[in-house]
Design a binder for these strands. Structure first.
Lengths: 180, 180
DNA sequence: TTGTATTTTCAGAATTACCTGAAAACTCGA
DNA sequence: TCGAGTTTTCAGGTAATTCTGAAAATACAA
């Protein structure tokens, strides 16, 4: 009898251990960037999976509840980082992540712009509008600082737009050349 | 009698209202980027203050406890975003923020590189080392994806290093030209 | 329609992160 | 050395977030 049942490919076991550590740590890192830990873990898991996984498989791999898995999967779809796929002959939904790192980057940039950078610009412009011309030395200093911040954030916004809309093959050579 | 006591410069009151909203909202935005809300608020407050503030003044402005103010002030100093200054004739410590937006940006980039990007690179390299050459198709795919991620993060790290070490006056014109 | 598989929802539980306030430690002039 | 002013610490409390699990809703094949 083959020992596959009791002792399958040992390399697979070693791989699993590394993958699990990767998923866990990636989740922790996500936390530092304001991303829900579980959401980052699911994303990590799908990024390194060769095939699409069902909600149940994700629940099992990460040892989380159905509700938790479901919500974070929906959030990831909302971010555009994963998509649902159908497997023929299966009624379940399966999920797969975009694997291309440059595309992932562009997606994250686009969403963060929309969710956080735009609101920040709105806030700053509003603050400037409402304090511009006030007769108070502190107010004058405030407006000046708000304008500096606004200008900077708007510039960052433009740069990110350009970068995330361009082709990786166009930008990378530029950067590498410039960085030398 | 002048009505200064009962009705001081009304522009100052309007300014205060806007400033308070700015500080509050900036704190909320910080949350989305993994930054403690109070820390972001203190930073916002000091960024738009004309003079350095004491711990007690910060406590009063933000209505927070001494311990909370103290800890977050120390964290901001740890990030290099604010510094303590001495006022002659005063025993208290006062704090002021760097106001130059480009310098703030460079400081944040430097710290985030150190605290999060470097550890991410460490994790990825470790995962690659430990799965390279394993005889398992999933492991091969994992290693490949980890290499892509690692390459990307290392590139981002280099770019950020270059940008944050360069002069604003050198980078900005370049960016603006490139973006046109 | 009916039964089964699957997804979605959400109230309450659990966890985590954050904050408070008071006491201890420290600083420094007198 | 003393004492008032100031900073630091931290045990315990609070608030915010995240997670669970079971029930309800939905989808679909027969």
């Amino acid at each position: 009898m083959s020992d596959d049942a009791t002792n399958p490919n040992p390399d697979r076991a070693r791989f699993r251990a590394v993958r699990d550590e990767f998923v866990t740590q990636w989740g922790t890192l996500g936390g530092a960037w304001g991303i829900n830990r579980t959401m980052a873990q699911i994303h990590a898991l799908l990024m390194v999976s060769t095939d699409a996984l069902s909600t149940d498989e994700i629940m099992n791999e990460l040892q989380i509840s159905r509700g938790n898995a479901h919500g974070n999967i929906r959030d990831l779809i909302g971010w555009g980082l994963i998509r649902s796929v159908v497997k023929k002959g299966e009624r379940k939904e399966f999920f797969e992540a975009e694997k291309d790192v440059w595309k992932i980057f562009c997606t994250v940039v686009r969403e963060r712009k929309r969710r956080e950078i735009r609101p920040a610009i709105g806030l700053l412009r509003d603050c400037i509008d409402r304090t511009e011309g006030l007769d108070d030395s502190e107010a004058v200093a405030f407006t000046k600082q708000a304008k500096s911040l606004c200008e900077f954030v708007e510039m960052a916004d433009s740069v990110l737009s350009k970068v995330s809309k361009s082709e990786q093959s166009k930008i990378l050579p530029w950067l590498l050349k410039w960085m030398s």
